[in-house]
Write a protein that binds this DNA or RNA. Structure first.
Lengths: 198, 198
DNA sequence: CATACAATCTTTACAGCGTCAAGATAATTA
DNA sequence: TAATTATCTTGACGCTGTAAAGATTGTATG
């Protein structure tokens, strides 16, 4: 049935991830299936089980890759706008744009992910969710510039992350009619809350 | 196979919805299936097709019921705290508490729903998402009290809704470690943004 | 080099899923 | 009472995830 020169595929694990991400980004999670990914890679339906214990393990691998991509998008934004006055607005915009560009990623990362995300600034966590750490780093830096009250810093970072996350959540939902030109207005949205460092 | 006095169930449509909501709230959407609901109602696997065209139509019915329940929770809060100074904080807390009490409801309503939600204040929409309309009504009323700049009202309502929604989104995710005592702090979170009417 | 072993892939099989079609039963209408 | 309609059952189909057994290839060991 399967047309291939060699019996072994040689690079199946990587291609499963690549084609998997492709399927998630184009068709979404709902219609995602192991067998489709296998077919897309030109192998039999059970071949993935040589590299992943089950479907969830492949999904976790996809999520790790997409999270890394997301994290890089945020870091790139800081590289460009990190020193400017409205750096946080740019970062928030990058957050939302990432998921606007790939609407399926949002629900995929945030409703199916098993990756532990710690927003509570606990010291024990060594490897926290990279996008949040990126965000936290910039926010704290900006607060230091304006002598923001120390005891409010933690709450403020969590609140800001929640806010940006909420915008992304709503703006990426097909059935939600968000503000028409949110992209131009996201700075205004953030400035609605007149934080001294915004 | 099926043990029942009468051949006809008499109240299947309603029970499908009741048992369906029960299954969604206990086991979540992932393991939800038409056949399980049918078994829970003591009917054969194809019986639901006499009342719903397909699985999605039953899911939509469940969503409508849960949305109504959510909307009532918000309205009850306004009945109690609508006149108090921190009314909006109470409403925000009610929003989050509703989904904390039923974590499965959040992803069920906001990642699978086909109900159109219009957050952009467009005039054409006659029957908008009731929870948002409830929130909007209170927020506008509070802004009027403090002579909040008219041109910022719309952005502010959208921003606040996004913010509350983001908190609920993060706080209901099992894999996210949100602030330990968010319930006491949600007022602080909201006050991080020192809006004059908060 | 030859043999054994491990990794990778295929085939077959099974239960659960959504859905459709045909038939059975009961309620409603004519 | 007879015909029609609504409701429910049964059986079937293709799709899904997953396990087991077998085929093929790569690798390590003698």
């Amino acid at each position: 049935m399967i047309e291939r020169e060699t019996y072994h595929h040689k690079n199946l694990k990587n291609q499963l991830i690549d084609k998997g991400i492709e399927l998630v980004s184009t068709e979404g999670l709902k219609s995602f299936s192991l067998r489709k990914v296998a077919v897309a890679c030109g192998v039999s339906h059970a071949a993935p089980y040589s590299h992943f214990q089950n479907k969830d393990e492949l999904l976790n691998a996809l999520q790790s890759h997409i999270t890394a991509e997301f994290s890089k998008a945020l870091e790139d934004t800081i590289t460009i706008y990190g020193a400017s006055a409205d750096a946080l607005a740019h970062l928030g915009k990058a957050y939302v744009v990432f998921f606007i560009d790939n609407p399926h990623y949002f629900s995929f990362l945030y409703t199916q992910s098993t990756v532990q995300i710690d927003l509570s600034f606990s010291e024990e966590v060594s490897h926290n969710y990279p996008p949040f750490e990126t965000f936290k780093g910039l926010a704290l830096k900006l607060m230091d510039k304006t002598a923001y009250p120390k005891e409010k810093k933690k709450d403020t970072v969590i609140a800001l992350w929640s806010f940006i996350h909420g915008i992304a959540s709503l703006a990426t939902m097909k059935n939600v009619h968000y503000d028409e030109n949110w992209e131009e207005k996201i700075s205004d949205f953030i400035c609605v809350f007149n934080c001294p460092f915004l």
